[in-house]
């Protein structure tokens, strides 16, 4: 048994898992506050990556400026999507809403293929991100470490926002019960728009980070699908669950890779393992680890 490889993969798993956790949080944020299952979350992430990359490469903007601009762009994009596509669907059956977000995902995929091309593109090496530092004997690229730090920062900001700010509390109130929220003077429409804005913005950040870690390409949208098992494991409506789910999926993926590479030699176990877990979890704990149990009588 190659224990060094195992440790290396576990560390990778934790780092990637944190990033999954961040995207899963965005997904849960939208689901919890607006009851929309957003299948286009992965495309949001890719869009963020592309916008930042083109600003840096084509417009020649310094990275931080481009990054700031990307944040603003993604927030506005989230609000526009919510206003134009999802607001008219309030009160429609969940299946229609799901169809619309799947449609949005396909539409965005094709559009990005057309505008940004089909090839993977790398960010210029801004932070010396390819250099390697050693943590306890394991070699880790700086970019990975930065991504880990950024994920932790985002999670801390989320925690602070929902715990202590006026708007964060208002969003939680809206998620709990819209009528009560309204009776307190909270505008539900405004809260919905805010949920989409934050979700798109943070997904965009994750996209930029992934772009720096590997490269920006349309296939990054797979993260949107990976996030599914993460979210289901954690329970659809739990933000903490999303983070834990993300970590579990990230670690599991890499464990699967290890077992596959060392013993089984099937190949590609890496991509499918999370979905086996998804099925198993749904069989034994249909509401996930942290989800609210809804008893529905038919």
């Amino acid at each position: 048994m190659n224990s060094e490889l195992l440790l290396q993969l576990l560390l990778n798993g934790i780092i990637v898992g944190m990033l999954y956790g961040v995207v899963a949080m965005c997904f849960v944020l939208i689901y919890k506050s607006t009851q929309v299952v957003n299948f286009a979350q992965g495309e949001f992430l890719v869009l963020g990556g592309w916008v930042c990359l083109s600003l840096v490469i084509q417009m020649g903007l310094p990275f931080f400026l481009a990054f700031l601009f990307t944040l603003v762009f993604m927030a506005i994009f989230g609000i526009v999507v919510q206003q134009i596509i999802l607001r008219p669907l309030i009160g429609e059956p969940i299946i229609s809403v799901i169809m619309v977000t799947i449609g949005l995902s396909i539409f965005m995929q094709s559009l990005m293929n057309w505008v940004f091309g089909n090839d993977a593109k790398r960010f210029p090496d801004i932070f010396g991100s390819l250099s390697v530092i050693s943590i306890g004997g394991l070699n880790v690229e700086t970019a990975y470490v930065m991504s880990l730090v950024l994920s932790l920062v985002i999670m801390a900001v989320f925690y602070f926002f929902f715990r202590f700010t006026r708007h964060g509390l208002a969003m939680r109130a809206t998620a709990f019960n819209q009528q009560i929220a309204q009776s307190l003077g909270i505008s539900v429409k405004q809260t919905f728009a805010m949920a989409w804005a934050i979700s798109a913005l943070v997904s965009g950040v994750a996209g930029v980070v992934m772009g720096i870690v590997s490269a920006v390409s349309n296939s990054l949208a797979f993260v949107g699908i990976k996030v599914f098992p993460a979210v289901i494991v954690g329970g659809l409506d739990s933000i903490v669950g999303a983070v834990v789910g993300g970590l579990i999926i990230g670690v599991l993926e890499n464990l699967a890779e290890f077992i596959d590479g060392e013993y089984l030699h099937i190949g590609n176990l890496y991509t499918i393992a999370p979905f086996y877990v998804l099925i198993i979890i749904l069989m034994i704990k249909p509401y996930g680890l942290f989800g609210t149990k809804d008893i529905e009588r038919i």
């Binding site: 006026r166 109130a173 307190l184």
Partner: peptide, 19 residues
């Protein structure tokens, strides 16, 4: 009563002053 049950007492009170 319309209490936000998954929040603390203080958070409920804070939301009273939301407007």
């Amino acid at each position: 009563r319309g209490i936000l049950q998954d929040m603390t007492v203080t958070e409920n009170l804070r939301l009273g002053a939301y407007s």
